[in-house]
């Protein structure tokens, strides 16, 4: 009787899981399908393209949209990587200090970080637009990296300080007794143990910066710094009545690829468990 029920429960879970997956992935599948459709096919109301074509990809990688898309892609990759790197390094140090040291203003840092991340992006972007134009950061890479840090740092600090708190303090003390300086103890014991946390933080930061649209479209004006999400809005059809939906879909598929690769690559590193065995199990 009981086994029967667990079997039924199991199948119900499966059904629920499939529903969620379909619900979540259907728009993605639709975009992939769109990107392979011909222009005439776009409004065919069919899920699959009647004829499969690489035209859209050709258009953004070699055709009319090449300049627009490739420079945007370069901007996106560069800005996101730099922003992620800075965020991870800064938040590692900051979170370590918060988790380990007792200093005045510790609470203040954490609350400020939280407060910053609460502000709606749209409320900051207008003053920032004016400020950036006055000090010459408008339409430059640093002009985007700095606001991205304001998005990624609070989250990274919170995630990482929670992670550092899990690492037994005795490990560090043991290292110091063993003859390590504070820096050596940090680098040779704490950092290796915090790697899963650092990777998780890095990936989250990467996503945030990679997916940003509001800053991207507001603080740039040319190909010098415009990232992909913003650049997509500048794709135009052959006439103003024609939307280049196919090309936009193709670009959307391409920008999704790095994210998928990242998750697949680091999935196992994100899964923690490295601290097992440090202390009595």
């Amino acid at each position: 009787m009981e086994r029967e029920q667990t079997a039924r429960q199991k199948s119900l879970w499966w059904v629920a899981g499939v529903i969620v997956i379909v619900y979540a992935l259907f728009p993605v599948a639709w975009i992939v399908s769109l990107s392979f459709k011909r222009a005439s096919d776009l409004s065919s109301r069919e899920f699959l393209p009647t004829t499969w074509t690489w035209d859209n990809y050709d258009l953004i990688l070699r055709g009319d949209f090449q300049d627009l898309f490739l420079s945007a892609l370069r901007n996106s990759i560069g800005i996101t990587l730099i922003a992620t790197f800075i965020a991870v390094v800064l938040s590692t140090f900051c979170a370590y200090a918060i988790a380990r040291l007792d200093f005045p203003g510790k609470k203040l840092i954490l609350t400020t970080a939280l407060a910053v991340s609460i502000f709606p992006v749209i409320s900051i972007v207008t003053p920032l637009f004016n400020l950036w134009r006055n000090i010459g950061l408008y339409d430059t890479w640093p002009g985007l990296i700095i606001p991205y840090l304001s998005l990624t740092l609070p989250l990274s600090i919170w995630t990482l300080s929670a992670f550092f708190r899990q690492i037994p303090w005795e490990l560090e003390q043991a290292a110091q007794v063993d003859g390590a300086t504070t820096w050596q103890a940090f680098r040779r014991v704490i950092v290796p143990l915090a790697t899963p946390g650092v990777f998780t933080t890095a990936i989250i930061s990467f996503f945030i910066a990679w997916n940003d649209f509001v800053y991207g479209i507001s603080l740039t004006s040319t190909e010098a710094a415009r990232p992909v999400p913003a650049a997509l809005a500048f794709f135009t059809g052959a006439s103003q009545f024609e939307q280049p939906a196919g090309a936009i879909s193709a670009a959307a598929v391409i920008v999704t690829i790095p994210v998928v690769i990242l998750v697949v690559l680091f999935q196992r590193r994100i899964v923690a468990g490295l601290t097992q065995g440090a202390v009595k199990g």
């Binding site: 037994p168 005795e170 490990l171 003390q173 043991a174 290292a175 110091q176 007794v177 063993d178 003859g179 390590a180 300086t181 014991v189 290796p192 143990l193 490295l274 601290t275 097992q276 065995g277 440090a278 202390v279 009595k280």
Partner: peptide
Amino acid sequence: KAPRDRNLAMVFQNYALYPHLTVFENIAFP
């Protein structure tokens, strides 16, 4: 003096082994 300058060896209650290192490297750490 800082702990590292006192040249003392300590065994902690929860052992405080370095989980990312092998037994050999744990012992070799100092």
